Amino acid sequence: MSDKFEACHAITAKWEGGWSDHPADPGGKTMFGITQATLSAYLGRPASDREIRNLDRATALAIYRERYWKRVAGDELPAGVDLCVYDFGVNSGPDRAVKSLQAALGVKADGWVGNLTLKALAEQADIARVIADLCDRREIFLRGLPTFSRFGKGWLNRLADIRNRAMRMSRGAPQTPPVIAPAEGTAKAVPAPPAEKTVSTEQKVGGAAAGAVVVTTTLGPVAGFWRDNKDVLSDPIFLAVAGVLAAVVIFMLLRRPKTVEEQA
């Protein structure tokens, strides 16, 4: 477990709180910020109400590291940016957090931290500007959610704390005393899932978990290679060169050799 992860998660964990089951929270039943759907995907099967209620901190920490910190490439991000992206990802989804970072950097927003994203970050002379831009984008997203009137105050308090701490991290300044976050944590800042009257919540969770297992098992290596090299593989120049090489190979394979009579 990296020191960067420990430092960032210690801040995020205070805002995620312990047990929560607010009827208006899109996350539903949540323990330490881990939703029942997330636990189901991690286990590879539907998690019961009892399992999410009794989730232990060690398992929650493992889930955060594998499904959030690694997903946003936290170890590769500059100090301060790592906290911003990680906390955003935990609260609203890693894909949305990374795309917002990429939009702030002016690179293709594909939801994966690859070579182009890291290069753009390395070339940034003003990391504080990136942090401010990312936090501004997060606030715009929060204010557009239908549950903002109910949970907005908590979300904005959390965002203000993350912004302040991320700025201090970027300057190498010591952290301020811990904030007093709500004991029940803050609600998940994600769009509410569409209502499906013909499918139960348990079936949806089970189906998502089963699908995750199949994809991870059969496509894991391919997905990992694509994720790590997507920036290069999707570059127009690379695609053009690859197309020319493919055409040459196909031409060589399909070229009919001359018969003895044709050679005479």
Rank of each mutant, 00 (worst) to 15 (best):
R67C: 07
E123H: 14
D161A: 09
T201I: 08
A47R: 01
D56F: 09
P46S: 11
G243E: 15
Q124A: 10
P146R: 10
V190E: 05
L121Q: 02
E66N: 06
D110E: 08
A62D: 09
V232A: 07
K204D: 03
L83V: 09
V98F: 04
L142Q: 10
V107F: 01
E202M: 09
F148R: 06
E66P: 02
T198G: 11
A62L: 13
E123Y: 14
L156W: 04
A128C: 13
R138P: 02
L253K: 15
G207L: 08
T176N: 06
D110K: 01
V232G: 01
E261D: 10
D231G: 05
Q175T: 15
V248L: 14
A187G: 11
P236F: 14
A79K: 11
A13P: 11
D56R: 14
D228Q: 04
P193F: 09
D82R: 00
T59I: 07
K258V: 11
L77P: 00
R165E: 10
L61W: 12
G144K: 15
L134F: 04
G211A: 01
C135E: 04
R255E: 06
G144M: 15
G144A: 15
T30P: 01
A60P: 01
L159T: 13
P191V: 04
S100P: 03
D25C: 07
V244T: 14
W226M: 02
S20D: 08
F238C: 07
I180W: 15
F251M: 12
L253C: 13
P191G: 05
G114K: 05
E184W: 13
G220E: 07
V130H: 00
A47V: 06
I180L: 13
G28A: 06
T218V: 15
V81M: 00
D25M: 05
D3H: 10
R129Y: 11
V244Y: 10
P94E: 02
R138N: 03
G27P: 02
Q263K: 15
V241W: 10
L145Y: 05
W19P: 00
N157G: 15
S234H: 14
A223W: 09
A47T: 01
V213H: 08
D126W: 09
R168F: 12
L55C: 12
R256M: 00
P78C: 08
V241E: 10
Q124T: 03
S149V: 08
K29E: 06
L121R: 02
E6D: 11
W19M: 02
T30E: 03
K108H: 14
Y68S: 01
T201E: 09
V249A: 12
M31E: 08
E202Q: 12
A189W: 02
Q263H: 12
R65K: 13
A104Y: 01
S149T: 12
G18D: 14
G144I: 15
L43N: 12
